[in-house]
């Protein structure tokens, strides 16, 4: 399938591995991605706190560009960009006057018909149709993942068509298992990590991250797997800080789901930028290799 691809600002900067991994993984699964031209910032979680009109207007321009280029589906790896784009589309379709008011300033008009998907949807479809399983060249044996969804992938401030369950989502688990990994049932998979509060209200954010980490650890996870670039950055970069508050010595690598799927599809360590983490995933990868060797020997 050909998708209109919206990377978003973070994926061009600190979360660039997620951009590169997404492109490589989807290409390996036979999809085409065309980055939409001259896209702009979606406003993320800040615009709605300042202005209800801008919250819709900022993602609207991107929708207009993707629709005028003739695409039927827009693919967004970043969960905040995905959520805000879904919200903007839904609010404009519910309120034709708002849509008209925004369209009057846009070079590319919004029709509001394009499907907006997170990258989990094509991955889940590939897992369900067994296509992912068939393309796996390296089983993710030894990976015991706590799949961490955070807020923006499943919870919305209005009614939207959501394919996964809001309270107990399972798309990431299905994808990992199709790639030969193990996933855990755990409590905090949709609990908030604090998001940008690490900048302006750090104590609160560290408490939340500590709670997520402790549950994952108690259930026996050897890594956290996420899709949101903010969750990934927070859980990874602040791990020393929240673990030292809790007196914990164990550390868990925090990986993007695309990183693990990429490994399973045979992509290389450097090619997936696995060396760009605060908590080094190398021990996990060695464990994976060891398990694969034992399996091959038996």
């Amino acid at each position: 399938m050909e998708y209109a691809y919206y990377p978003g600002c973070t994926l061009k900067q600190s979360a660039f591995p997620l951009d590169r991994q997404s492109r490589k993984v989807l290409r390996a699964l036979g999809h085409g991605l065309t980055e939409i031209r001259d896209w702009n910032c979606c406003g993320a979680t800040s615009a709605s706190k300042l202005d209800d009109f801008l919250e819709v207007a900022m993602p609207a321009r991107n929708i207009g560009i993707a629709e005028s280029a003739g695409f039927e589906e827009m693919l967004i790896p970043c969960s905040a960009c995905y959520s805000k784009t879904v919200v903007a589309k839904t609010r404009m379709n519910r309120d034709p006057r708002l849509k008209q008011e925004i369209n009057s300033e846009l070079a590319h008009q919004v029709r509001g018909e394009i499907r907006v998907s997170s990258i989990l949807e094509p991955l889940f479809d590939a897992a369900r149709s067994r296509e992912l399983g068939q393309r796996v060249s390296r089983q993710l044996s030894g990976v015991v993942a706590a799949c961490y969804y955070g807020c923006m992938l499943t919870r919305f401030p209005l009614d939207v068509d959501l394919r996964d369950d809001a309270e107990n989502p399972g798309f990431m688990e299905a994808v990992l298992e199709a790639a030969g990994g193990t996933s855990l049932d755990w409590q905090e998979k949709t609990f908030c990590c604090g998001a940008s509060a690490t900048v302006y209200d750090r104590e609160t954010a560290l408490d939340l991250m500590g709670r997520i980490f402790s549950d994952a650890l108690a259930r026996g996870a050897n890594c956290l797997v996420t899709l949101c670039p903010v969750c990934q950055m927070n859980m990874d970069a602040y791990q020393e800080a929240y673990c030292s508050r809790l007196g914990r010595s164990r550390r868990l690598p925090v990986l993007f789901i695309t990183e693990l799927v990429g490994l399973a599809l045979g992509l290389g360590y450097k090619e997936l930028y696995l060396d760009r983490h605060f908590v080094d995933p190398a021990p996990l990868l060695r464990e994976m290799e060891r398990q694969q060797e034992t399996e091959a020997a038996s």
């Binding site: 061009k12 900067q13 001259d38 702009n40 202005d51 321009r61």
Partner: peptide, 24 residues
Amino acid sequence: LGRLHPGWTVSRGRRELGRLAAKS
């Protein structure tokens, strides 16, 4: 970790966004 982006990223859409912001 090589995760600090040295360049600057800009969209020409800033003009349209500016008009929308003024409207709100």
